[in-house]
Each structure stands twice: as C-alpha cells, then as structure tokens.
Write a protein that binds this DNA or RNA. Structure first.
Lengths: 367, 367
DNA sequence: CCAAACCTCCAAAGCGCTTTGACTGCCGCG
DNA sequence: CGCGGCAGTCAAAGCGCTTTGGAGGTTTGG
C-alpha cells in the first residue's frame, strides 16, 4: 500500500533537471548540454546522462524550455467556423491529420483554434503577441486575404494552404493547380460532346473557387461556348447544396448534361438529384468532381464512382507542415531574407463511372 | 521609415509585466494582482492598471504564467489515426468544433495530437509527464480501454466521449444512449413489418458498436426473431464500406429488406448499393441511420432523406468540454474526491424518406 | 491615546530550463 | 619550463510570471 503510494508519487512528481543533475553528481548545465547534443560534453558523460534520463523517465518541461529559449515548439492552425452554417469544412480533418503527423515527428505540438470566421484576425494577433506558437498555417484564403499582410507584419513564419490572388506581398504557400485541373476537367466534358456544363463551386469569397471558375471558363471560351451564369453556383460544400442546386438546374427548360463539382460531398447530392429526376447517372448526366481523397470517402476502385481530378488534401497537409518547419528551421539558423517557398501540386485526372458521351437524343427531351 | 521600424519593434517586443509595472510606478506584485482580480488592491489602482494594460496591449506570457502556476491552460484531444486505413474519423471535426468553442470561451488552448492508434498510450503519458495540458478528452473508447486506468493512475482530469464497458474503475464520461437508440430504431423497422434487418456497425473493437449491437439484438429477440450473424457487419464507417457490404448482402438469396446503419456516411453507400441493385430506396429497402448531425451532411428538411436516430456530435463536443473545464475548476478549488460526472444524451427519432412498410411481395422475389 | 486590525503595496524567492562567462586541468609547442 | 589552447565542467543570471512574507500607513475600539 505504502509502496504503491510512493511509486505513484514518484511517477507523478516528474523528475526535473536539478534532481537529475544532483543524482548524477553533475551540474544542470552539463546535463542540459548532454541531453541537447551540445559538443562541449564528453561522449562518456553524455552516455551516462542519457541512460539516467531514460531510467528516470525524465522529460524536460516544455514550458520552462519555452520560457528559456523563446521558442514554443508549437504550431497553430486556425480553423474558421462559418458563422452562416456553423459548418466546419470536413477537409480540415484530413489536412490536419497530414500536418499533425509531420509535427509529431519533429516534436512540435499542434494548437488548434476553432473560431468564428469574424474573430480570426483577433485570434492571429493574440497567438502571436502571446508568443504561443512558432508558426502558423492559414487555411482557406479569400480573394484578398488580410491575414496575409497581417502575419507578414507580425513577422512570424506562416504557410498558406492555397493562395490569395489579391495579395501583392510575397508569402509561402502550397496550393493545387486549381485552374489547370478545372480546365482539364471541363475539357474532358466538352470532348465528350457536352455543351451545357454546370459548375458547382465553393463559396465565392474563397480564392480557390475563383481559380476553378477561371479554368472552367477558359475551357469553355476556348471552344467558343458562351458562359451561362445560370450554370454556375457558389456555396459551402455540403451534400444538401449539391442536391438542391442540381435539382433546380435539372428542372430548367434547357438543363445541363454535365456537372463539374468542387468536392465529393456535394457531388453525392448531385448524384441524388440526378437519380431523383429520373436520369441515369453517368449516362444521361455526367459528373466530374474535384476529389480531395478524403479518407472516409475514397473514390477508388478499378473504375471509381466519380471521374475526378484528384489531389490528396492529406498530402497537402503534410507538405505544408514540412514547409513550415523548414522555414522555422531556416529562420533559427539565421537565414532571414529568403525567397518565399511555394509548391504547386498538380491534380491527376482519373476516369470513373460518372462520365459518358453526351447522348445524341438528350434524355430530358423524352421526359 | 525610422518611425515605422520603431513602431514595428514596439509591437513585436510585447510589453511585459516588469515594464508595465515600471511605467505605472508600481511593483510587479501589485500589477499582477490588479490584473488577476485579487482583493488586496484598491479599486482605484486596479482601474489605472487595467487601463494601462489595455493601452499598451499587454498580454501576459502564457508560458511564464504556466511555469509559475503549474497550470497550462490547455486541453489535449488525442485523435487516433487508424493504421489500417489511415483514416481520420470525420465526426472528430464536428466534435472538436463544439469543444473548441467552449475552450476558447474559457481561455484554454486546444492541443490536438494526431497519432497512430498504436502510439496512443505513449502520447498520453508524454502529455501528462510533460505537464503540457491540464486535462484530456478521450475519443472512441474500446471495449476495455486501457487509457482510462492509465489516466486515472496519472491523476489528471479527463473526460471520455463514450464509455468502456470493461472498465470497472469510475471515470467522467459523456455518451449517447446508443443501446436505446438502436433498440428503438430496430423496433421501428420491425413495426413496419421488416424481418430481415441488417446492421452495418462501426469497428468491432469500439465500445459504442457493442452497445448498438445490443440494442439491435434486444429488439429482435423481444419479438422472437433469431439473430443472423450474417446480417451484422463491422468496419470503419466509410462510404465504400456501406456500399460493398450492402451490395453483397443484397445479392444473397434471402436479402435484408432493411438496413440499420451506424453513420450517414456508409448510409450513402448503402443507398448507392440499393439503387445499383435495382431496388427502390425507402420502398423496397428501408434504411434507418444514426445521424451525428454533421455540419456538412445535414439530414434535414421537412422530410429528411434518412429516417434517423439523431444526436449532435457537435453538441457532445461542447458538453464534454464544459464538463472537463468544470472538473478542472473543482479540482483547483480543492474539491478532490467527488463522484464522477456522467451525461447520457438521448437520441431523437425522426422519420425520413428512407423507411416504409415491408412490401407484401418482396421486390427481390421478382428479380 | 494606544494597541489591534485592517489596507495597500512591495521585495524577493521561486517555477524548470538555457546560456553566458569563467574556471580547472592537461596537453603540446617553442 | 612556461604559456596558449582546448576539452570538460560549473555557478549564476536570466526567461516573465505568481506568491509568500512582510512593511508601512490608516482606522478602529476600548
């Protein structure tokens, strides 16, 4: 009983540097240096120190370390919650999973701030002035995102997932070539003979939505097809959005024969609307999606359900995190005035069951 | 130019207590106490201090504060990544959104650790011995989850989202009444005349899956229906899983006429399989789901797509967080030996388009 | 009028770590 | 033999905050 209690106590009162040093008959300085790999300590001592640390399950307090060094060994991701729909973009889960892996490997903690999108600026300011983190990842940039100049001014390392067309200053980013992807996807549908191609895009305020629209429009204009604004929708990418918009569009006199959808989630809704309207998915009406390769919604198989331009958001998270850690490393190494790092990922096009040639006699004419 | 540089510097070199105290002609002690609402400082002084702090945009360093007080003002959520499928459970996004809100309100940071499920124990140990957080939330408990005794031993406040049937020691939890929910859902299908009811459950190792199975079995046995193990599936709740299992089951000689599905995501797959097999969804084959009320997959409308037992996972996140903060508050108040806190949420049943009476002449007989 | 009881405020000692500056032997070199 | 240099170690000064243990000054009560 007493023994139990004692051992519990010993376990809880985690050993600190002072005790460890005392136990070894060395100074705190030497122990600290031995553990942190400084060269001015003999290998013999280092080994002894390492062993003792291991044996006593010694973990340096990150708080104290942080106070002493000025580094916090933490990265923040600020995830905005849409105040409209109280919605959390589900791609964040996979993005963060990818990034988290990278952080864990490097011994960094991940600080997640979930804030109403109106409070974002304040949160960024707060995180920086409190010196709570060593770096930040900016999600879902808008067309001219003021977080970018803000963070530049605050002079803290950060990486943007995506880009912001309206921002002139330079910054580190990682993005998918959205324009190219959607140009190709649209091209594919046009090659199949479709002329009425609808675009179900993300929120109009977000930058990536514009790049996607650009690619779509460019492909249409290239073939001399005029753009029908009625065929373009913007909203948060829920299943319901896909369903409602597709239902409405398919009920029009001259309905689309193909849909280009910004995410697999609304695409599920589009598919539902297609079936509800009595059309055959992939035959009467085609769909091409942008596939983020979400872990719980894999669009795979020999012939995947959806024809898609695919780019793994999880991989994006991982690479964005790696980039950020590299930037922090450089800055600590004293490299201050470097060119910004930028990665443009290409999406790959895979053919699934959701696309087919435009039918000679459109089915909707039969209805 | 020079002015600019200076103002930037001032901004970056965040004011600290010492400077602020000096500026006010007071001691650090008094300023600290004034700011933290201690009674031994006059109201006049307190007001002056507050104003000065405001004016200079003073933020106490959380690190220093943390080191001095022993509290870290942070909560950890450890999110396991299934090593099988590299999958992140999408309900985490909404759960965390709910919890994050609560933490933000209380001034706590949220530390998110994404770790392979095999590494979980180590991560918990690490977080505690490093004193990185003041409390933890345990996600997705297994049947006898060893994290619970571990955390009890480590003597740190924690809340479990769900329960672990095999754990005898007491702990704080928040759960949905899964057994009741699935008993009711099954009962509904049986009332509609269905006799072959399939259950697409979550991973068999997870506790909630067992409770759901229990409810399902109890409802069947209540009506004297024998349980067909072939009608029960367990796996991670992806769309594909729903599709594949439903496809297989529907191809059997004596296929189910109804499905009970543990999440809306595989239910989408089940629906796909039903249509692919030539059945009519909600007429030939019924579905009842457990609906976590995911923000991007709302099952709403006058008559929602799916008949469902619903319980908002976001609300669960919020309440779990509130519970944890309350526990921490109590412990700091010296209240040590309290009964554990436990909340059991009831799911509500709503009728959607996915259920109907079992057809007199089963359609599959016609095929 | 004096002691006791406040009120306000302060100096200084931590919290657990890193890092500077210095010190001690010991070796090699001129 | 004496000196510079080097490897290995240490004491002590922070990092920015909280908190203990008073110190003065002002009221109160007998």
């Amino acid at each position: 009983m007493v023994l139990n209690f004692q051992s519990a106590l010993i376990f809880i009162t985690a050993m600190n540097l002072k005790e460890l040093a005392h136990k070894l008959g060395l100074s705190q300085t030497t122990v600290s240096r031995a553990l942190n790999g400084y060269p001015e300590v003999s290998e013999a001592t280092r080994r002894k120190v390492r062993e003792a640390a291991e044996a006593h399950n010694y973990r340096p307090s990150p708080r104290a370390k942080s106070l002493a060094t000025g580094r916090s060994m933490a990265i923040a991701h600020v995830v905005p919650v849409s105040s409209q729909h109280e919605m959390v973009n589900p791609i964040f889960a996979d993005f963060i999973a990818g990034a988290g892996e990278e952080y864990a490997r490097a011994g960094y903690d991940l600080l997640l701030s979930v804030v109403p999108d109106s409070d974002q600026d304040r949160m960024y300011r707060d995180l920086v002035t409190r010196k709570a983190v060593d770096g930040l990842v900016v999600q879902a940039p808008t067309l001219t995102d003021n977080r970018i100049p803000l963070l530049n001014e605050l002079d803290i390392p950060f990486v943007v997932h995506g880009r912001s067309s309206g921002v002139v200053s330079s910054y580190n980013w990682l993005d998918v070539n959205n324009r190219r992807a959607f140009e190709r996807a649209t091209g594919l549908l046009l090659d199949l003979g479709h002329r009425r191609v609808a675009l179900l895009n993300g929120l109009a305020t977000l930058d990536f939505a514009h790049r996607r629209s650009d690619g779509y429009k460019r492909a249409l204009l290239d073939r001399g097809i005029t753009i029908d604004p009625e065929m373009i929708a913007h909203d948060e990418m829920t299943e319901n959005y896909g369903y409602e918009v597709a239902r409405r569009m398919l009920a029009q006199p001259n309905p689309p024969t193909a849909f280009l959808v910004s995410s697999i989630i609304p695409a599920i809704g589009v598919r539902r609307a297609i079936k509800d309207a009595g059309f055959e998915f992939g035959r009467d009406v085609s769909i091409v999606i942008h596939d983020d390769d979400l872990s719980y919604f894999r669009n795979t198989g020999d012939v995947p359900l959806f024809t898609a331009v695919r780019s793994s958001v999880r991989e994006a998270g991982q690479r964005a995190a790696a980039m950020l850690l590299e930037i922090i490393r450089r800055r600590e190494g004293g490299i201050t005035d470097e060119a910004p790092m930028q990665i443009l990922m290409e999406a790959e096009l895979t053919i699934g069951q959701s696309t087919g040639p435009r039918l000679a006699t459109p089915v909707h004419a039969q209805n």
